[in-house]
Write a protein that binds this DNA or RNA. Structure first.
Length: 481
DNA sequence: AAAAAAC
């Protein structure tokens, strides 16, 4: 493997770009472009960019000021990745790195490996960023020796990431990627691949049974890291898994959301990390028109949902509900009323879940009713509408609105520069206030829809969706859908 | 009182 660090630190590979230099100048510049800060974890970092939307903190301030470690890169070529990986990017029509890729990739692929905590909006290319890093760390001459482990919070997301790695790595000879999810890895042989992407329980099970040799792992990626580390159960599993891995492993944490409380866990889990993060106000994706439907009472929600069916099927749509039971119930009623809908949640068997999502990806099914299992990460570019049939709430008792889950749910549309609509159903004071708190948290206004003004509703929704011509100017959908 | 995640 070529020495990536020496490549990216060559000034000749890093042409100084005036535009990049000007955005890199922080508002509170101390004169040399950096600002000394001490975080509550006691680690000194330098803020190298505090433009309005992105903040980068380096764990190590020793890097050359002209290095792309500071300024980011403007092209994939500057990263000096091996040819098969660049060929994979070309074949997928990845022309220009997205914002998060520009800034995070040089920091992640440089040597010595440094941990990373990265936050970027949904649909802005986080997956490709960590997939490229993973591929850059793998020695393809040892195809059955596990070298990279990626963890995700659901079976569906693990499979999706596996697909992206296989697609980006299609020209990497002898690349084998396995999904460590229930039912996927043979009990006889155990893990026989260089890259493993899975869910925490199965991964831990395989390690305990000694069917997964973790001794040569070089990089650990945790996608949806705030969810993974925060969740009772999954947080414990992630900590235990890390405890069984080599101590020098590079740890990369990714998510669109990192609540302050979880950020402290994250810094302990991935010590001395470089950090890239966005401000609250910059988290929401501009292309998503966020609306809410003012339902007169709870029982009318179902009728209004059915009226929306015609708008849902202009593209594809995801309907989020709170429980598996209500997903089943709404599916049953809608089918009885002549609508074609499918439902996916954790009560279904694994193979069934795979088939349901494959049908949705391919457009064979266009309306999917689901729980929070699909709230995060799932990338289906045809999704033009997301409906929050139930407003997401945190914990038991529905006491607190779940702003993070809201953001992840609506992020199933409007991916990679496309546009989309989200419609959240409110029907009483409590649901209205929950949604208002979420809107306040992100500093946004929601567009009101009234069930009686149906012409207006149709017009507002169609206006957005009809302009939804897929015209991303960077990092198109990695699965090609 | 929920969802998810292992056998």
């Amino acid at each position: 493997m070529a020495d990536l660090a020496s490549r990216i630190s060559k000034p000749s590979d890093a042409p100084v770009d005036d535009a990049a230099a000007s955005t890199a100048a922080p508002a509170e510049d101390n004169g040399n472009g950096t600002e000394e800060v001490i975080e509550d974890d006691g680690i000194q970092r330098g803020i190298i960019e505090t433009s309005y939307d992105v903040e980068v903190k380096l764990a190590d301030l020793q890097a050359d000021k002209d290095s792309p470690l500071y300024s980011g890169v403007q092209s994939f070529e500057e990263l000096g990745l091996p040819k098969p990986i660049n060929d994979g990017l070309l074949a997928m029509n990845f022309k220009k790195p997205s914002k998060i890729q520009e800034r995070a990739l040089p920091l992640m692929i440089s040597d010595p490996p440094t941990n990373m905590i990265a936050q970027s909006q949904s649909g802005t290319g986080k997956t490709a960023a960590f997939v490229l890093t993973v591929l850059s760390r793998v020695d393809f001459s040892k195809p059955q020796q596990p070298q990279a482990l990626l963890l995700a919070p659901s079976r569906e997301l693990a499979r999706q990431i596996q697909g992206v790695i296989q697609t980006v790595g299609q020209f990497c000879e002898n690349l084998i990627v396995e999904a460590a999810i229930p039912g996927a890895i043979s009990r006889e042989t155990g893990v026989r691949s260089s890259v493993v992407v899975g869910t925490p329980g199965t991964v831990m099970d395989l390690i305990r049974r000694r069917q997964f040799d973790v001794s040569q792992l070089k990089v650990l990626v945790i996608d949806e890291a705030d969810n993974m580390l925060d969740q009772q159960g999954m947080g414990d599993q992630c900590i235990r898994v890390k405890g069984m891995l080599p101590k020098t492993i590079q740890i990369l944490l990714f998510s669109a959301t990192f609540p302050d409380k979880v950020m402290n866990y994250a810094r302990k889990y991935a010590p001395n990390s470089n950090e890239i993060k966005l401000r609250h106000q910059e988290l929401t994706v501009k292309g998503i028109s966020q609306m809410y439907m003012d339902c007169p009472d709870e029982s009318k929600k179902y009728d209004i949902l059915c009226k929306l069916y015609g708008l849902m099927t202009i593209g594809s749509s995801v309907i989020f509900v709170k429980t598996r039971e209500s997903a089943n119930e709404i599916q049953r009623r809608m089918e009885a009323d002549g609508h074609k809908v499918s439902a996916l949640h954790g009560a279904y068997e694994g193979q069934n879940r795979d088939a349901l999502l494959d049908d949705f990806r391919s457009g064979r099914s266009k309306v999917l009713i689901t729980t929070n299992v699909l709230a995060r990460g799932i990338d289906v570019s045809s999704v033009s509408m997301v409906i929050n049939y139930d407003i997401p709430m945190k914990g038991f008792g529905d006491k607190e609105p779940d702003a993070e889950t809201y953001l992840h749910r609506i992020g199933r549309t409007g991916r990679f520069g496309r546009v989309g609509v989200s419609i959240s159903f409110v029907y009483d004071r409590k649901s209205f206030e929950a949604l208002s708190q979420i809107a306040d948290f992100y500093g946004i206004d929601l567009i009101q829809l009234l069930p009686d003004d149906w012409d207006v509703t149709e017009k507002k929704v169609q206006e957005v969706i009809k302009s939804s011509r897929a015209k991303p100017d960077y990092a198109p959908n990695a699965l090609g859908n």
